[in-house]
Design a protein around this nucleic acid. Structure first.
Lengths: 148, 148
DNA sequence: CGAATAAGTAGCAAATTGCAACCATTTCGA
DNA sequence: TCGAAATGGTTGCAATTTGCTACTTATTCG
């Protein structure tokens, strides 16, 4: 890859940029998405994403190296499998907001798409950023304060 | 780019994949981040991101073509400027969750980073996905239901 | 046992990215 | 008002990254 985390971030003091240095390529977040939805094996990730096999090898290695995935022995015997770490699972809000934006802006009205549902089959409500006092927050009501 | 939206999505019925088809490259979300923090001109985007100029040209065109940015005449006279559309501004929750993940996982303890604050200078609270009944939701308590 | 499956590797071509130089307008300062 | 700097790109080329198509080495299944 072109980004070389741990050796030089794109924009060292911006958390958005650091996150994108780790997962901001075309495939990593889709691998994480599939891991969240139950994929564990190389073949399963390949089948779900359609990614090239050598690139998948590379992405699984990088995600593992960066602590988002861990390789462990499968409970049923001797096979290896990839599972999300706590940090990887913590990308849930990112995947969710990407999904919700897509639902709102990347589909024509009436066009069908998959849905994220909870255990009862109820769709997950939309994320609405809010301040401590409950008021809605957006790009126009917030700004970045530089690191001290 | 390799993804060709409107002609063939990576994974047509997944909203996450469609969103990444539009902004899932190394630079688009950083351009959006800077637009949210006040950048309007070509030069300003270039200075803030450090992106190569020809690539920036390409990204601004694509974001505009996809309806995330619009080019309009600057209020003060005759210059052109790039501004976020409603769809672009609606990426706020995505940028915010990327930021919060980075703050939690991409910095060593005590390492300084920029912060997102509201108009009073108060840091924006963390996003915590929850069901309609208020219970916290995560990757393990949700799943994707295929499009009907 | 023999075939299919899993998990990669290797080689090469195509696409993407980045760098540096160049160019046409605007805008600014003396 | 004239020259210089800034703005907003474009172009050409080199370096990276990606994707495709084999090929390989275990396992596992029937």
């Amino acid at each position: 890859m072109s980004r070389t985390p741990d050796a030089g971030w794109t924009d060292p003091e911006c958390p958005v940029a650091r996150t994108l240095d780790l997962v901001g390529d075309r495939w990593s977040l889709l691998v994480v998405r599939d891991a969240m939805d139950g994929a564990r094996s190389f073949t399963e990730f390949q089948r779900r994403t359609g990614i090239a096999r050598n690139i998948l090898t590379d992405r699984l290695r990088k995600l593992t190296a960066h602590g988002l995935l861990a390789q462990r022995t499968a409970p049923s015997g001797r096979r290896q499998e990839y599972v999300l770490t706590d940090a990887g699972r913590d990308l849930f809000p990112v995947i969710l907001t990407l999904r919700q934006w897509g639902e709102r802006h990347a589909f024509d009205a009436g066009e069908p798409h998959s849905t994220l549902v909870d255990r009862h089959g109820t769709p997950v409500p939309e994320i609405a950023p809010a301040g401590a006092d409950g008021t809605a927050l957006g790009a126009d009501t917030t700004h970045v304060r530089k690191a001290r």
